[in-house]
Write a protein that binds this DNA or RNA. Structure first.
Length: 278
DNA sequence: TGCACAATAT
DNA sequence: AATATTGTGC
């Protein structure tokens, strides 16, 4: 009793085919505008047509421990009063980093500090203990997750328990003073699934158009305890040595050591900016 | 205007 | 949850 083939099945099938306009062009560039920005590829924004730069949307910034460290260092050396988005941004001198980026991060960082204040008063907890999770664990699981980033670096002590008062002298550090440091480029992430292309070729992946952009950190989700993994990708950059001054793209990680936290021992990590506290 | 900041949106 | 965007007051 099976139905025999209808004579017009083909016709119906044909009718349901999508119109040409509905089909995605087969000849689509593999490098999307966003990706192009992320890697600072000149021709990326264009392809078939140059779109106004203002129209292009910046990819999401990923706050890697390295970036965050710069952030914290900058805030630490500015003092609470001067630690405002613009100033922080300047001090960080990270290529591609916007004021908005910093503002958003700062907002969350302040919340983190506030939480820590409350905790320290009752439990006497430090950043380490709060994030360590090993002790007590009065904080929510969500907070613990958040703290992974923020606690990945030491929180300057004087951040806490400090009301509106005159900061210890450290008025200003001209950006010029930092110039001798390597300028790092903000790590940036695609919003959508984008192509697995990127994911898969992470690390050993040369640009078809420009030279190579091995820049360490692309969208790694949930940094594992052993974050050397992440540094590992940066290490990949070392494996295939990027010729120093690539014409348009220069992105490096400066302090790989910054990832070392409490568990690493009492080792002192040199901060980006001279604090005098070291 | 531009900025900081908080609130809200994705 | 992590960033981005928006709204408000200065």
């Amino acid at each position: 009793m099976r139905e025999e083939e209808e004579p017009n099945w083909f016709a119906r099938w044909e009718e349901q085919l999508p119109s040409p306009e509905e089909l995605t062009p087969l000849s689509q560039t593999l490098i999307t505008p966003d990706l192009a920005i992320a890697f600072d590829i000149p021709g990326g924004g264009g392809g078939a047509g140059e779109e106004p730069a203002r129209t292009l949307k910046r990819p999401r910034l990923v706050w890697t421990p390295q970036l965050h460290k710069r952030f914290v260092d900058a805030v630490a050396h500015l003092g609470i009063k001067n630690a405002v988005p613009k100033t922080i941004m300047q001090l960080m001198s990270v290529d591609g980093l916007t004021r908005e980026n910093v503002a958003s991060h700062l907002q969350k960082y302040r919340l983190y500090l506030k939480r820590m204040q409350g905790l320290s008063s009752s439990a006497g907890g430090t950043a380490g203990s709060a994030a360590g999770g090993g002790a007590g664990g009065p904080i929510s699981a969500a907070d613990a997750a958040t703290d992974q980033l923020f606690a990945s670096g030491p929180v300057p002590h004087h951040f806490l328990g400090r009301g509106p008062g005159p900061e210890p002298f450290m008025p200003f550090v001209p950006v010029a003073a930092l110039q001798h440091h390597q300028q790092i480029t903000a790590a940036v992430q695609q919003q959508h699934q984008q192509q697995y292309y990127q994911q898969r070729h992470m690390g050993h992946f040369g640009s078809p158009t420009t030279g190579g952009y091995d820049h360490g950190f692309l969208a790694r989700t949930v940094p594992q305890p052993g974050m050397h993994r992440m540094v590992g990708s940066a290490a990949v950059g070392l494996v295939s040595p990027p010729p120093p001054p690539a014409p348009s793209a220069a992105s490096y990680v400066d302090d790989l050591e910054s990832g070392s936290r409490g568990g690493g021992g009492g080792r002192r990590v040199l901060t980006l900016f001279p604090t005098g506290e070291d």
